[in-house]
């Protein structure tokens, strides 16, 4: 049998024996960004549909978690930078071909929008809240007047935020596991599922919980379809992508991916939600926590496994 032994004299830290440049910060941010995107998407969607009183948790209360998630995510991103004091360079350049540039600018827009949305709903948490200064009251009145426009902007930017977290990785042709356009929609779906779960966790209205369990169920179905589709794509592709899929099909990430992401993060919560919709008594917290856990694990496993996948030459 013909064999090949490759010996490289290179042993650069974080590059060899395989890429290890991105650690916990990036997957944590990808999760929090996706979560915020999911929360803000549903808030905007049901506000635009005029359902803010039917689903008050989703429209008015869950969004308070979005700016928190975004700020923690941004801090994680900042920690990841190695040349931290130059971070502002992100905002002196617009690079249309760089997903990271898109992401930086999207965050620049959606983070303030999420703060404004929370400010408009502050009386949900503190009914007697009064702004101290006139100019804040005037600003509030302005945004209240144009809240529908704000909601549309929030929905569109939430979708960009959710999908870009996947595109960020899929743009790297050097890492065959990431290099699939399925990753954008998959991460968006995972973010929407996480956002729906937060509403289920926070809501004390039965109708709202049931509605979001139904939504979550549909999104999980889409995620499972995308995952199957992703593997079909990999296995029908070139050798490097067949090898990349192997990381999850017998390789070192097999157990982690199928148990944490697919079984615990998708199939089990879907089963629990079906039972809940069929009026079995299921604690709503169980599927929601499982979905959030699966969503976090999806990012961690993809970021770490992707760095192992490579071209061999």
């Amino acid at each position: 049998m013909k064999e090949e032994i490759i010996v490289s004299g290179r042993m650069n830290q974080m590059i060899d024996p395989h890429l290890n440049i991105w650690h916990w910060e990036i997957p944590l941010y990808l999760f929090l960004g996706g979560l915020a995107a999911g929360i803000l998407f549903f808030a905007a969607l049901f506000f635009i549909n005029g359902k803010e009183n039917t689903y008050p948790t989703a429209v008015k209360r869950a969004p308070f978690l979005a700016p928190i998630a975004l700020i923690i995510g941004l801090l994680a991103l900042f920690f990841d930078l190695r040349h931290k004091l130059y971070f502002w360079q992100l905002y002196t350049h617009i690079r249309l071909m760089s997903p990271m540039s898109w992401g930086a600018w999207t965050l620049m827009i959606i983070t303030p929008i999420s703060f404004i949305w929370c400010a408009l709903n502050i009386r949900e948490l503190f009914p007697k809240w009064e702004w101290k200064y006139d100019w804040i009251r005037e600003t509030e009145a302005f945004f209240r007047k144009y809240q529908l426009v704000l909601a549309w902007a929030m929905m569109i930017y939430a979708m960009i935020l959710g999908i870009y977290t996947g595109i960020l990785l899929s743009a790297f042709n050097a890492r065959p596991l990431w290099n699939t356009s399925i990753l954008g929609p998959l991460f968006l779906a995972s973010g929407l599922s996480a956002g729906a779960s937060v509403t289920i966790l926070m809501s004390n209205i039965k109708k709202e919980r049931k509605r979001f369990a139904e939504i979550d169920l549909i999104v999980i179905g889409i995620e499972l379809f995308l995952i199957i589709h992703m593997f079909m794509g990999f296995l029908a592709s070139t050798e490097v992508q067949i090898d990349a899929a192997g990381l999850f099909l017998g390789g070192p990430y097999t157990m982690a991916f199928w148990i944490f992401v697919v079984i615990l993060g998708m199939l089990l919560p879907a089963l629990l939600e079906i039972m809940e919709i069929r009026k079995y008594h299921i604690p709503a917290i169980a599927p929601a926590i499982l979905v959030l856990f699966g969503s976090l694990m999806l990012r961690f496993i993809f970021v770490y496994a992707g760095q192992v996948s490579r071209w061999l030459y």
Partner: peptide, 10 residues
């Protein structure tokens, strides 16, 4: 350079 690592991964 902000040291984000995108080029390294690419």
């Amino acid at each position: 350079c902000i040291g984000c690592g995108a080029c390294i991964a690419s």
